Simulated assay, not measured.
Amino acid sequence: MEALRVLNNNVVLARDGKGQEVILTGRGIGFNTRQGQTIDPTLIVRVFVPEDGRDPDHLAQALTFVGEEILRAVVIALGEAGIEGRESTRPTLAIAVADHVANALERAKQGIAVEYPLRAEVQALYPTEYAQAQRLLVAVNEHVDPKLEPSEATALALHLVNAGFASGDLSFTYTMTGVIQQMLAVVGEQYGLDVSQESMTAARFITHVRYLFVRIQQHRQLKGHESTIGKGIRLHYPEATGTAQRLATIVELRLGQQLSEDEVSYLALHVARMTTEGDGAVA
């Protein structure tokens, strides 16, 4: 491993044998280390490999604000909660969670309590991540002092949701949460229904929208000339298509991205399922 930049005594940006930039952590790994110098492998505790085009230098700088002990506690907790292996090399999730835990611990030491306004939305829209976050919180509390409050599960769940996006920007996840809520409200208003977020069809709709947001982030929408399947959906479900077009307008206004015809068609399909199948809505 060749040192490219020393961030502090515990974090070094380096180049591995394959020529890719990696982030190295370890107590004292940056002490007396110079650019171009070969790093003593015995000092390396963790090797993080940036993914999805994320900037290694930016991630390395983020790590400098997190203590090695907190990072270690989080990496272990992620493994104990069954979210990541104990030897995880993905930096984004570990860094984001560690940074949050560090700030939460500081608040706890000062006696500052935080109530997250999106708790109900997170529990309803992201039940899998919320359950994971609760397990993660229990695991983290096994390794830190003072213990974090149960309300922190909401923020941890948002970080788990956010891990699937290319930008790593938590604000996008907040926006997505609000847009999904707004979409469900529009469907309920359009059809005079109380759409149950716990129903199978609503769950499918939410999952579809989440993957739609991933495609938007990665600039990989289903697009081009409208497919035969898309045309068939729009022809068979004209009312749902009208609703889907309203939903597409919300996305465009909130995210500044116009949806392709096929994306609108598949939204229409999910709207039709949610509003016509027995478990999709409650009158």
Results as ranks from 00 to 15, higher is better:
P146N: 09
Y116K: 08
V138A: 12
A185F: 13
L118T: 12
Q132G: 03
E149Y: 07
F172E: 15
L71A: 14
K147M: 14
D145S: 15
A157G: 10
V144L: 01
A153T: 09
A113F: 10
L78I: 05
I112Q: 11
N141Q: 09
V122L: 05
P91L: 03
T154C: 06
A94D: 02
F172A: 14
V140H: 00
A133Q: 04
E69Q: 13
R107K: 10
Q181H: 15
T154R: 01
A124C: 09
Q110G: 09
A73R: 02
T89I: 14
Q182R: 15
E142P: 00
L93N: 02
F65E: 12
V122F: 05
K109A: 05
E142S: 05
L105F: 01
P150D: 11
I95G: 05
L170H: 11
Y130W: 06
L160S: 00
V144M: 01
A124H: 07
H100Q: 14
D145M: 07
A166N: 10
G85P: 06
Q134N: 12
E149W: 10
A94K: 03
E121W: 08
R107P: 01
G168K: 00
A94R: 01
Y116C: 08
Q182K: 14
P117S: 12
T92H: 15
V114K: 15
V187C: 07
A155D: 12
A139Q: 03
R107E: 04
E121M: 13
L160R: 00
A157L: 02
E84C: 07
G79D: 05
V161T: 08
P91A: 00
V179F: 10
F165V: 13
A113G: 08
P146M: 07
L118P: 01
L71F: 14
I180W: 06
Y130R: 06
L184N: 02
H159C: 14
V122T: 06
F65W: 08
V122H: 00
V161M: 06
V97S: 09
R135N: 15
L105V: 01
M183N: 02
Y174E: 14
V114G: 09
H143F: 03
V114A: 13
Q134Y: 03
L184P: 00
A98R: 00
E129R: 08
I83M: 00
Y126Q: 05
A133S: 04
P91C: 03
T89S: 15
L136A: 04
M176P: 06
E106R: 14
E142T: 04
V114L: 15
A133N: 04
M183S: 07
T154L: 11
E84P: 03
Y174C: 06
G168R: 01
V186P: 07
E106V: 11
Q123C: 08
E87P: 07
H143M: 02
K109N: 03
A185I: 14
K147T: 14
E149V: 11
V97I: 11
H159A: 11
L158P: 04
A185W: 15
N162L: 05
L118A: 11
